[in-house]
Design a binder for these strands. Structure first.
Lengths: 196, 196
DNA sequence: AGGATCTGACAACAGTTGTAGTCAACCGAG
DNA sequence: CTCGGTTGACTACAACTGTTGTCAGATCCT
């Protein structure tokens, strides 16, 4: 009977809760220690759970990493969609999107690092071709007016790279600039990409 | 007696040769398997040498990785310097530089991956703050005319990110475009960074 | 030929990894 | 109270890591 109640909650509830704890622990490690520090054992230590529960929710270390990445990616996507909705002009759309993204990764730099760095550094993600940035880039690309298919794609890829790098530099402190100026510059990048 | 000749060569010569083999093996692994696959044992297998000779030339695994990175970096720097020399106008300078860089990483994608990805993924490099791209970017940035110190820095960081991302996408095949068009677009990026 | 030097294969160390299994203790339904 | 689902601590395994050490054999100078 899976519906049986144990410590006030049902089994499925606790199982889901443990899964959340594991994903949260994975986010913490992947966003600070990086890929190498995100081992099954380390995740379990962080989540204060034993390996048994790890394999209860994930078949692999790989599956956990992918789950963390997709979790953060979905959050970012949602933030972007929310930000863009109800923005009338292209300029305000760009500004709202950039602001939302900056807020997301400034409030929680771990998410920024997972989103921007992890797919380049973790074999579990690179091998699966898990790259959300191209997806975001495609979203951006659709908004672009100039050029043919390939042209728009190149512009979008370059734009995403530029934004990523600026964010990363901002995150690790090597680019000391106020948040407002960061946003303003990124908006300029987005708008400039459509320009020439 | 270090000058003594053994199998036709002196000891120092053979030692230097082994070092080269190790660096070459490190480049191969770091540029294909990535940081995780570049272990001391794997490098030695690849170089067909034993661990003994590894520690004859390097104190650490870290030292080998740094040597590989600096080796490739020096090659790239030299290619850039050569390309820019004798180019009269800023436009031709940008074009020559981009073309040289593209040729370098297209002829040998392993070098591209080492140059662009390794400093983000390998702790041995991140910890030492070994990032040559900002250096290259600074070189480019000096040519830029507009804006104050911070402005130029932001522009340079963004430009490097844009170029990196385009190169990476091109390298892993997700951006299918002719080499000429790639160069042309990158030149446009470089020139455009100076624009607005 | 003798003796110094160099070479390469391999073992040993303690550590971590992913993954699986065991076993005593707990908890709530009947 | 008993029984079966649930928990957590623990162990086991083979594979790998960085690093150092050993030892038999090859190579050259005198």
């Amino acid at each position: 009977m899976p519906g049986r109640t144990w410590a006030g909650t049902t089994l499925d509830d606790r199982k889901a809760l443990r899964r959340e704890q594991l994903v949260a622990a994975g986010l913490e490690l992947l966003g600070t220690e990086g890929s190498a520090g995100t081992s099954v054992r380390a995740v379990c230590r962080q989540a204060k759970l034993t390996e048994r529960y790890f394999y209860e929710s994930f078949a692999d270390r790989e599956e956990l990493v992918a789950a963390v990445y997709e979790h953060v990616g979905e959050e970012a996507r949602q933030a972007l969609v929310d930000a863009v909705r109800d923005a009338p002009t292209p300029v305000s759309r760009a500004e709202h999107a950039v602001r939302a993204f900056v807020e997301l990764i400034v409030d929680d730099p771990r998410k920024g690092r997972v989103l921007l760095l992890a797919p380049l550094t973790d074999p579990a993600l690179t091998r699966r071709g898990l790259h959300l940035l191209p997806v975001f880039a495609a979203l951006v690309g659709e908004q672009l007016s100039h050029g043919d298919e390939t042209e728009r794609r190149m512009v979008a890829v370059g734009l995403v790279g530029a934004l990523s790098n600026v964010f990363i530099a901002y995150l690790d402190g090597s680019l000391k600039v106020s948040r407002e100026r960061l946003v303003a510059h990124c908006v300029k990048l987005v708008l400039g990409a459509d320009g020439h």
